[in-house]
Amino acid sequence: MTSRLFNNKRAVSPLIATVILIAFAVSLGAVVMNLGSNFATNDPLANQKECVGMGLKFHDLNGPQITFSGSGADGFVEFVVDHVGTEPIPKVRFRISAAKGGSTQTFISDLENSAIEPGYPLSKRVAYNYDTYGIPKQVEVIPTAQRNGKDLFCFKNSATYTLP
């Protein structure tokens, strides 16, 4: 019995062999596809697979292209960012962390018509009220992806500039 079991080289029909091998390949695939996904469960930013391929960087022309103009309530900020990733960005969020009277203020604006294709720049002029928010300390342009119809902000892929 034992020798028959091991000497018979074609023990199963091709159809059954195919089904077994497909099941084996699917299980291998499931294991491999989930490898490493648990490494970063404590870091929510690392689990943003929707953000993969999105990357912003301030355009560099003798320094990053950000200018603060105007004064008081009529201030504005102009900037140019480059999409240095590989996946299209549907829209971006603009955020300024500012200092006013010893406390930190945050200005946030979800910019309209701010979709960027890979390799292209985005140039925007955003109104900013110095009286309300104070002196800008840090500027961030954050790519916004979608997860289940909701906005997902890709902080790891954002362009950040801290003012000296």
Partner: peptide, 23 residues
């Protein structure tokens, strides 16, 4: 051949589903 084809398909789908260096 079926098995080989399924294994080839694991490559691209992993890049889509769980892109990290280990996977």
């Amino acid at each position: 051949l079926v098995f080989g084809t399924m294994l080839i398909a694991i490559g691209p789908v992993t890049y889509w589903y769980n892109p990290n260096l280990l996977s």
